Amino acid sequence: MAGLWRLLDRIEDIRKSRLVIAVAGMEGALSSVLAGLIAAPINAVPTSVRRGVSQGGLVALHSALASCAPDLICVNVDNGFGAAQAALRMVRASR
């Protein structure tokens, strides 16, 4: 179940991160919302879900790709491994 209050309850902890991997299904709004609240880069991972009209993660993917939020990159649906690999390279490059 989504809810902005759940994110805001942890936002100070999230802001301490050098990079965030945001995993979101349904409409995939989480990554764009986070981008408005934190300064760190965000790797968006759209996920496939089995309910609603999310079309196996395509709605979340299109949402992340269409976002105009700064410092947001997107990997393919359910590609948490790819997001983690990109995050490692980004952190290593920033040293």
Rank of each mutant, 00 (worst) to 15 (best):
A2P: 15
G3T: 03
L4G: 09
L4S: 12
W5C: 10
W5P: 11
R6K: 13
L7T: 08
L7P: 05
D9V: 10
D9W: 14
R10T: 12
I11N: 09
E12N: 15
E12M: 11
I14C: 13
I14E: 10
I14P: 13
I14M: 04
I14Y: 06
R18M: 10
I21W: 01
I21Q: 00
A22K: 02
A22L: 07
V23K: 00
V23R: 01
A24K: 00
A24C: 08
G25Y: 04
M26W: 11
G28H: 05
A29Y: 09
A29M: 03
S31I: 00
S31Q: 01
V33Q: 00
V33M: 05
G36I: 01
I38M: 05
I38E: 10
I38D: 07
A39Y: 11
A39V: 13
A40E: 12
A40W: 13
A44S: 09
V45D: 02
P46A: 00
P46L: 01
T47D: 08
R50T: 14
R50F: 15
R51V: 14
G52F: 15
V53E: 13
V53S: 15
Q55C: 13
Q55Y: 09
G56W: 05
G57F: 04
A60T: 11
L61N: 06
H62Y: 07
S63I: 02
S63E: 13
S63L: 05
L65F: 03
L65M: 09
A66T: 09
S67E: 05
C68K: 03
A69M: 06
A69H: 06
P70W: 06
D71C: 14
D71H: 12
L72A: 03
I73Y: 07
I73P: 09
C74G: 07
V75A: 03
V77K: 01
D78P: 05
D78V: 02
N79S: 06
F81C: 11
F81I: 10
G82D: 03
G82M: 01
A83N: 00
A83G: 02
A84F: 02
A84D: 02
A84C: 03
Q85V: 08
Q85I: 08
A86C: 14
A86I: 12
A87E: 03
A87S: 08
L88Q: 02
R89G: 12
R89S: 14
M90W: 12
M90I: 12
A93G: 14
A93F: 11
R95S: 15
